[in-house]
Each structure stands twice: as structure tokens, then as C-alpha cells.
Amino acid sequence: MRMTRIIVAGCLAAAFAVPAAAQELTGTLKKIKDTGTITIGYRESSVPFSYLDDNQKPVGFAMDICAAIVAAVKGNLKLDKLEVKYNPVTSATRIPLIANGTVDLECGSTTNNVERQKQVSFTNTHFLTASRFVSKKASNIKSIADLAGKTVVSTSGTTNIRQVTEVNAAKGLNINILPAKDHAEAFLMVETDRAVAFVMDDILLASLVAGSKDPKAYVISDDAFSLPEPYGIMLRREDAPFKAVADGATAALYKSPEIVTLYAKWFQSPIPPKNLNLDVPLGAPLKKAFANPTDSGDPAAY
């Protein structure tokens, strides 16, 4: 601990001595420089973006991207050593923890939309996902129209439940929409026949099905309730210097061939803890979003 402090103090002293760093730092970058630490918020079960592996260590596609951002921050501040702290967040705690400065980057599966951008900023989109539904093959539900008059579950407070509500009202399907507390519980409702289908981001459905007792018993719909929506890594709003570093780091990563390897590692090969393979190929819209990195919250932009 003492040793760490000496090293950090040394780094800070060295950094201040460099004339190039004379420019005044503000916001998150200043905080990182002053404390020598950066705090990453992770989700405990957003497979494969951010979750705990069998050693209770946070891993995932978004965590790897955040590692690239951390490296860029370290280079930008000319630090020899940057301590990375990990802090678990949930959908309910992520905003307050970002706002009050506990967490500097939220690396998970947070949907980037225009409304949320009034409260936080997002860096370049790292995934696109549409709202689809999973059902048991045995219930033989092929399209959204087949859901008419049935009970459907979705996770409360998500953009997905909002889309089902809208489609239900617009098409007059008379679907009984049940809100569940979290994804695992919503899936349990389909598993125990409390609901015939679960509406969610297709990628999360794929991971739930892959992790279920009998993956072959379920099918994910072709019909989608929405255009693909972007996921982004969340940071504090009105912090342009920090966002510039994060955007630069993610853009460089997404444009390099490395992103294809990284994508294959999490979406097309066996991943811990159960060595499941989600087997989701890299689609054309996401390829385009990687080639031209953007932080737009508008689904029409992709």
C-alpha cells in the first residue's frame, strides 16, 4: 500500500513536471490524475457485455472496450500507473453513481437514447440490438400477431416494455403485458408458463436461452418490435475532455481489425462461466457502426 502510494506520488510528480501537461485539467480527467484511480461500473449479469465469471471477476465485451479506454486515459495523462477499481451497478444505481462521481465509466448494456442523453453522455456505440421475443417452441408462436390475447412478459422500466405497450395499443392485440423485476425472472415466467413470450433485446434473449436448462426448447422471433437500438458506455455529461479521450479510444479500437477478434471472442466462441457459445454473427449495421463510430442515440442513424 505504502509502495503504491509512493509510486503514484512519483507518477504525479513526473506528470506535473512534463510541460505538455501544463494545460489545465478539468472534470473526470483531473479527478483521475489527482487520485491515480479510475472506477469502472460493471453489471453482474449482462452476458456477454459485462458480468461476473466463475472467479467473481467482472469480464465481458464492454469490459474489454473499457480496458482500451483506460489505456488511452493512462497515455493521455502520462501516468506510469493507473489503478482500476471495479464497482457493481444495477439499472437503478447506475445514474446516481455516475452523477455523484463514484463511477467514471459504466461498461455494460445500457441503451443509448436521446432522452437519456439529457442526463448522461455515451461514447461510441458498441452494439446494436432489436427488441424481439423468446417463446417455447411448443407454444408455436411465429409472429407478433400470434401474441394476440396472450400473456407476455418484459422487464419493467426497459425500452422494450414500452415498445410492446405501444405496438399492443397501435395494433389492438389485447396482449396482457406483465412487468418483471429483471431478465432472469422474466425468463423464469416463460419457463414456468406464466407468460407465453418474453420481449427483450435479442442479444440478451440469446444469452438467456443459451444458459437455460434446455436451450433447444426455445425460439427467438424473427419479428422485431423496434429498429435496432444502440448500446453505449456511459459517462458523466458535460465533460468534453474525458469524452474526447473515450471517443478517441473506442473509435481507434472499432476501426482496427482487433474489434473483429474481440467480437468473435465474446459472441462466437465459448465464454465463461459455463463455456456457452452465443453464436451471434457480426451483422451489417453493426459493422457499419464500427467503421464509422458514432454516439448517436437515434436508431434511424444506424
Binding site: 432522452e115 412487468p179 423485476k181
Partner: peptide
Amino acid sequence: TIGLMELTGAARSMQEFSFHV
């Protein structure tokens, strides 16, 4: 936790839609 949108559930869902926690 079982999907009843009572007051706490409504507040939770409001914060997730609006991000005004």
C-alpha cells in the same frame, strides 16, 4: 419483484424511462 406496479415499482420504472432517479 413479482411484477406488481405499485408505488416503488412505478418510481423504479419512471427512473429507468426518464433517468431522473
